[in-house]
Amino acid sequence: MKPTQIDGWVLADPKMARAILTGRQRQMRVPLAAPLAAIACEGAVIGLREACVPGRRRSDGVEMATDRKRAEFVAFADGWRRDRSGRQWRAESPRDAAEKWLAAMHMPGWATRAQLVIERRTMGRLRAIGAEELVAEGYRTLLPLAFWSRRRFAARWDVLHPQCGLRWADDPEVAVLRFGTCRL
């Protein structure tokens, strides 16, 4: 059975979306100050939003970029398309700089490819992340290389959370969300 009611949304860049869709990422950390931390309790369903290009077909069948309101489908960075009825197909990845990319926050709800069902929610400090948790966060890590994975995670965290009090060096409290993925 597929969950349908969305309790909240997570915005994913193409790398994170790919890690979630392939099952490589099964966990994420969220600052306690973020709205997602408040609604993400066990059993909550979180929709995955990704950057996409809204598209439609011309009368000759050729795909073209369009605005969000007239979109018949959306194209994702990995080349997959999803239409309003939920049908999916793969085509060439959008590469044209003039394509009308929508930021993840503007992706239409009907284009969601996956929902995350929260299985466990715990609290902790950001910098308490260990090698096993790095793997659950989608980072490939071998014990000799765990130091580098941790540094990559810290650098990425700081890009996504540059605010004072939320940076890696500030070691904020976070909600650690373990989830199962329901592909749609």
Rank of each mutant, 00 (worst) to 15 (best):
89 W>M: 01
111 A>K: 04
152 R>I: 03
85 S>K: 14
59 S>G: 05
94 P>V: 08
42 E>W: 06
89 W>R: 03
73 F>T: 00
85 S>Y: 10
156 R>V: 06
127 R>Y: 06
38 A>R: 08
92 E>F: 08
71 A>G: 14
158 D>N: 15
88 Q>T: 12
125 R>Y: 12
69 K>M: 12
9 W>Y: 15
138 G>Y: 01
91 A>K: 10
122 T>F: 09
105 M>T: 09
109 G>R: 06
54 P>E: 13
49 R>D: 10
124 G>L: 02
121 R>F: 07
101 W>M: 06
156 R>Y: 13
46 I>A: 04
77 A>C: 02
46 I>M: 09
34 A>E: 11
174 V>L: 04
88 Q>R: 13
19 A>H: 10
68 R>D: 11
138 G>A: 00
73 F>E: 01
106 H>C: 02
78 D>V: 04
48 L>T: 08
11 L>H: 00
173 E>T: 02
151 R>I: 06
101 W>R: 00
111 A>M: 04
108 P>N: 13
13 D>Q: 05
28 M>I: 09
143 L>I: 04
152 R>D: 15
113 R>T: 02
143 L>S: 09
73 F>Y: 14
17 A>V: 02
34 A>K: 07
93 S>N: 12
146 A>Q: 10
109 G>F: 05
21 L>T: 06
138 G>I: 00
24 R>V: 02
80 W>E: 11
84 R>K: 10
123 M>D: 11
112 T>V: 15
107 M>S: 07
17 A>S: 12
98 A>C: 03
71 A>Q: 09
178 R>Q: 12
36 L>Y: 01
162 P>K: 14
159 V>G: 09
118 I>S: 03
84 R>F: 08
87 R>L: 12
140 R>N: 03
7 D>K: 01
184 L>K: 01
78 D>F: 02
23 G>H: 08
7 D>N: 15
181 T>S: 08
